[in-house]
Design a protein around this nucleic acid. Structure first.
Lengths: 200, 200, 200, 200
DNA sequence: AATGAATGAGAGTTCATTCAT
DNA sequence: GATGAATGAACTCTCATTCAT
């Protein structure tokens, strides 16, 4: 099941890995299955990756770096908190829509203990939560939002996003598109209303 | 090497399994490790359980049934939506505080494809979301909350709760207690403010 | 090809390993072959040994300790140098006669770099050489033997013994017995005459 | 990454092989490592050699032929036995001083069963022993040396030489030079005194 | 001649599961 | 019921060798 076009082997294998792992989970996917999906032999995989973990670890690493940059860019903008949340969610869901399988894997394999992979994901997750918590704290100090523990709120938001995304990923394509379309606005409103100071 | 008072072997093994799997994940835990932790031999495990999956599958099944009943009881009460959410979260977090390891396992092993275990958990999750979505819909029809997609909102709430719980589980015991203490109120408020109709 | 009697599995496997490795060399022997020779399955081997190296490493370790004790006992005796050499060689060859395969392996696998095994053997060898060198030095100081570099002489003696042993191991049983029978005396004389002070 | 003046690829690879194998042993050296050390690609190796064994097999064969000639020349000379031994050892050690790595490999890989390589070396060894044994026998018949089994004595001499050489190869360069310098004389004396008839 | 990506047989090792004691 | 030694299928990973370029 070779992918067409001009991509190199390395990418073929990474894509195949994501495909297979999204379907069966990391530990129940074998290198052989991934190789087959990529249209190469098992040995070839090891010409491009250190070991099994490395196949997706590298994908994740670069993917997560990319995202971090996107989000940091948004958080640096001089717009309202609501605007920032809205924008981040927008980019998040529209990117996810093009990487369904990868999103599945990320959600599934997060917080696996004793796995470079899981640890890395957890780390990024925590970093993201902290980042958002800092943002919330700023606004809290400016008295724009009601009293709350910023890390708890940030954690709640992350979880909410992930959950909605997972919910969408399990639906048929049309429903998914619908959900992903309305999710950014719905969630941004939900979050913003949920934490803003009651205007009288 | 547990040796509690009067519990039977079956429970010893289940508890040991939870302990070990919480630490290392399902696929990286061996039957031997679980048996050791339970103070029995590997062979004995198979006198009580069909296979490896079965060890925790049964724990989860009964645990999930229990919870379902608790929640349904709350949702049947004739109190405000906020009150209901508050009460469910209260019970959820206070129960979780006593079952940290089990919660860890449930969160970690959720949505593992190709595993009776993961499928069961996913199923329960979806059921829960539907249940809450129905509740939200009721209130939506009564015009008490702003327009929204109930399943998306319900899904967001589930995710938020799980995420805060995970966040707490990774902290040291004191911090965890603090987080679990304030979480029900904080989240209930967050959710309620987030979806209720703006009472000018 | 199970060994008879009352020995336990551990010993069966070690003996099988020595048998196979004597025949084909360490790197060209597979765990499966060893298991087969021992009459067990490959998996069983790992119930008794950490890994492939461990199978013979443990045999060697205890064997070498044994020998060290034997030799040290002889070197502690208050008899002539010639007598000591003679006695050590006697014990060495008569022990070797009962452990042909083990001797083969020890000689073959000595000084394999990058192998716990080879390093251990080399170490013992060097220790032995030093021990003998010290002995030679003593006699040198007493002016009983001609001027020489004791470590070179000791090294030469060790090599000579090993070589004669190897020569014997490659012969048919009868020839071997003959060689091993006369070797201690022949070598002791050769060494002693080789280094003693010319009497007048 | 060798790059000597005018030698051809074939020799580059052989030298690289010696270098690598001396360091890690035959079975733990890979063709790729050898190729890298030689500054060529793995594929190129197979333009010059049949297979992995062949790389050093050819080196050894020619090297051993060379030596044989040298020794036979000496043994043909009409000088005393002591003189012959002395001369052979002289040439042996001085040649070895210039080919440390090759000597290491020869000593390490000797008597590997199931390897063209090992068998060839063993064969040469045995031939050499026989040659010397014949020589000894001659002198024995002439009544110049004491009664002994010539092959045993020859075997002992070979082993002694190899052992001293190995001992030197493991030392630092200066010590090695010292050892190699005095070894021929020391060993020749040792051997000669060891076997000659006691001249009252 | 030279390359080095691709191969695939086969190695060591793990571990859920069985079963004689 | 309890045991834990034995099993063997399956996995990850290595590497000599090939061959299209």
């Amino acid at each position: 099941m070779k992918k067409s076009g001009k991509k190199d082997r390395r990418e073929d294998i990474q894509e195949a890995a994501i495909e297979v792992i999204a379907r069966k989970g990391y530990f129940q996917s074998t290198v052989k299955q991934i190789a087959e999906e990529a249209g190469v032999s098992a040995g070839t995989v090891y010409n491009y990756f250190e070991d099994k973990q490395d196949i997706i670890f590298k994908t994740f690493s670069s993917e997560l770096e990319d995202r971090k940059k996107v989000y940091e860019a948004v958080f640096g903008k001089d717009i309202s908190l609501f605007g920032q949340i809205r924008m981040v969610l927008d980019r998040h869901f529209s990117k996810a829509a093009k990487q369904e399988q990868l999103m599945k894997v990320i959600i599934q394999e997060k917080s696996k203990p004793g796995l470079r992979l899981g640890r890395k994901l957890n780390e990024c997750y925590e970093e993201g939560i902290l980042e958002v918590a800092n943002l919330v704290e700023e606004y809290l100090e400016e008295d724009q939002i009601r009293e709350c523990d910023p890390t708890v709120v940030a954690s709640a938001m992350f979880g909410a996003v992930e959950s909605v995304m997972w919910y969408g990923l399990l639906r048929d394509p049309e429903t998914r598109v619908e959900i992903f379309d309305q999710a950014p606005d719905a969630l941004a409103n939900f979050f913003w209303k949920g934490m803003k100071k009651q205007t009288k």
